[in-house]
């Protein structure tokens, strides 16, 4: 396994949300401000990396019949740790994400990677898999947040970027963000559940279009090379 290939797979060709189509509940629910999206993405990244390393480290001693139960306990342990850390150090994020932080336990991305990847691979490869799959998830969340926030309320980086006290990033969720056009012009429906379903649907459609196009291009290229050979 080389790292470059894993990087490309995690972010694009095998992206957890857009290609594997897993872990969509939280993706649609919390992508209303950039603050939530970045916070959720990084939390999942940390939990995923820890779980990947833990599962691949003990992969040879887990009995096959009860492996799912063991995975769930490991995941729940790390989720509890992150949940408590967020409550202590970034309470604003903990409040904003609410029940979706403990619900990372049943996020299919983590148990899916444990089952599909970490069981068969070394600790090192699983570590990078966790980081890149986590980054791929974060990337999707960020794209959705930017789109929904911009159309919904004409803002960029709500909660995260504070321009009132100089241009800086805040971690307490109080930043007002950059107002690109007046809020009253925004279609506030994009920040409601309707916008969540619609944005994710459009994003997956774009992804399918792009993947199909690149596959076709490669096919044509292969065909052309074949003709030249003949």
């Amino acid at each position: 396994m080389n790292i470059k290939k894993q990087f490309k797979e995690g972010l694009i060709t095998n992206n957890p949300v857009l290609v594997q189509l897993i872990g969509m509940c939280a993706t649609m629910a919390i992508t209303t401000t950039l603050f939530n999206g970045v916070g959720m993405g990084l939390s999942v990244l940390i939990i995923l990396t820890c779980c990947n390393v833990a599962v691949s480290a003990i992969r040879k001693i887990i009995p096959n019949e009860i492996r799912l139960a063991i995975f769930v306990v490991i995941i729940a342990g790390f989720v509890t740790i992150v949940d408590l850390l967020l409550k202590a150090y970034i309470p604003a994020l903990s409040d904003a994400l609410g029940v979706f932080i403990p619900l990372i336990v049943v996020n299919c991305i983590i148990i899916g990677r444990a089952e599909a990847f970490c069981q068969k691979n070394t600790v090192g490869a699983s570590f990078f898999d966790g980081i890149f799959q986590g980054l791929g998830y974060t990337l999707v969340l960020i794209v959705m947040c930017i789109f929904r926030e911009l159309i919904g309320s004409g803002r960029f980086g709500g909660g995260l970027i504070d321009i009132a006290n100089g241009f800086r990033l805040t971690m307490d969720g109080t930043g007002a963000g950059i107002q690109i056009f007046p809020e009253t012009f925004g279609a506030s429906i994009m920040t409601l559940p309707f916008g969540g379903f619609l944005t994710l649907g459009l994003l997956i459609a774009v992804m399918q279009y792009a993947l199909k196009k690149s596959a076709k291009k490669q096919e044509l290229k292969a065909q052309a090379e074949k003709e030249v050979d003949e």
């Binding site: 189509l21 379903f197 619609l198 994710l200 649907g201 459009l202 997956i204 459609a205 774009v206 399918q208 279009y209 199909k212």
Partner: peptide, 10 residues
């Protein structure tokens, strides 16, 4: 390109 999941989500 909307085949499968995207059309369901919409």
């Amino acid at each position: 390109c909307f085949e499968g999941f995207p059309i369901c989500l919409v």
